[in-house]
C-alpha cells in the first residue's frame, strides 16, 4: 500500500513477544499470524466472522482473528492452535479428534480445536447441547459434526477420569 505509513508493533503470541515490522495498518490478526509470523495453523476461509476457521484465544476468549485488527491487538495474550500443546505433542483434544475420525479435509479443524479446548477449560463436563453451542461458530462442510461432538465428549470424559 503506497502512501501509507507502515506500522511496527509487538504482539504477544503463544507466550512470546513477536515483532511485526513494515505492516499495513489494516491487516487482520489472522493475516499477521499466517503471513508475517509463520503460524499457518489458523485458517482463513470467510474473512468476515462467519466460519470460525480463524478462531484464536484473545485474553483467554475464543474470537475470530479475521475480525481483530492486528495493530489493535497489542498487549493482548494471543494463543493460536500451535500454542495449545507442547512442541510436537498433540493435546488431548487433538488426540481425541484423531481417535474419533473427527477430521476429513481438516480445514475447520484448528478452529474447532481452539473452541473445544476453551470449552473444556471453562466447563470440564459439558452436555451435548453445551458442546454444540461451543462449536456453533465453527462451520464444517465435510466431516459433519457427529464425530467432532463425540471427540470433544470423549476428551472431557478422559480428563474427568484422570482427575478421578
Amino acid at each position: 500500500m503506497s502512501g501509507e505509513a507502515a506500522l511496527h508493533y509487538t504482539l504477544h503470541v503463544n507466550g512470546s513477544d513477536r515483532d511485526v515490522a513494515d505492516a499495513w495498518p489494516g491487516e487482520s490478526l489472522l493475516y499477521v499470524l499466517r503471513e508475517r509470523l509463520g503460524l499457518p495453523g489458523t485458517k482463513n476461509a470467510c474473512d468476515q466472522g462467519e466460519c470460525g476457521s480463524c478462531t484464536v484465544l484473545a485474553d483467554g476468549l475464543p474470537v475470530c482473528s479475521c475480525m481483530m485488527l492486528a495493530a489493535a491487538a497489542v498487549g493482548r495474550d494471543i494463543v493460536t492452535v500451535e500454542g495449545l500443546g507442547t512442541d510436537g505433542e498433540l493435546t488431548d483434544v487433538q488426540q481425541a479428534f484423531v481417535d474419533h475420525g473427527a477430521v476429513q479435509c481438516g480445514f475447520c479443524t484448528p478452529g474447532l480445536i481452539v473452541a473445544a479446548d476453551h470449552l473444556l477449560s471453562v466447563n470440564p463436563a459439558p452436555t451435548e447441547l453445551e458442546i454444540r453451542e461451543a462449536i456453533s461458530g465453527n462451520l464444517c462442510r465435510c466431516t459433519g459434526y457427529g464425530r467432532v461432538i463425540a471427540a470433544i465428549a470423549a476428551a472431557a470424559e478422559d480428563r474427568s477420569a484422570v482427575r478421578g
Binding site: G26, Q48, C64, C66, L69, A71
Partner: peptide, 23 residues
Amino acid sequence: LAGGTDFMVEVNYSGRRPASVIA
C-alpha cells in the same frame, strides 16, 4: 474500533481505509 465485527468486514471486503483508528 470496538469489537471490530462490522469494521473489519468493511476493511476486509469493502475497501474501508480509515486514515486513523482509535481502539
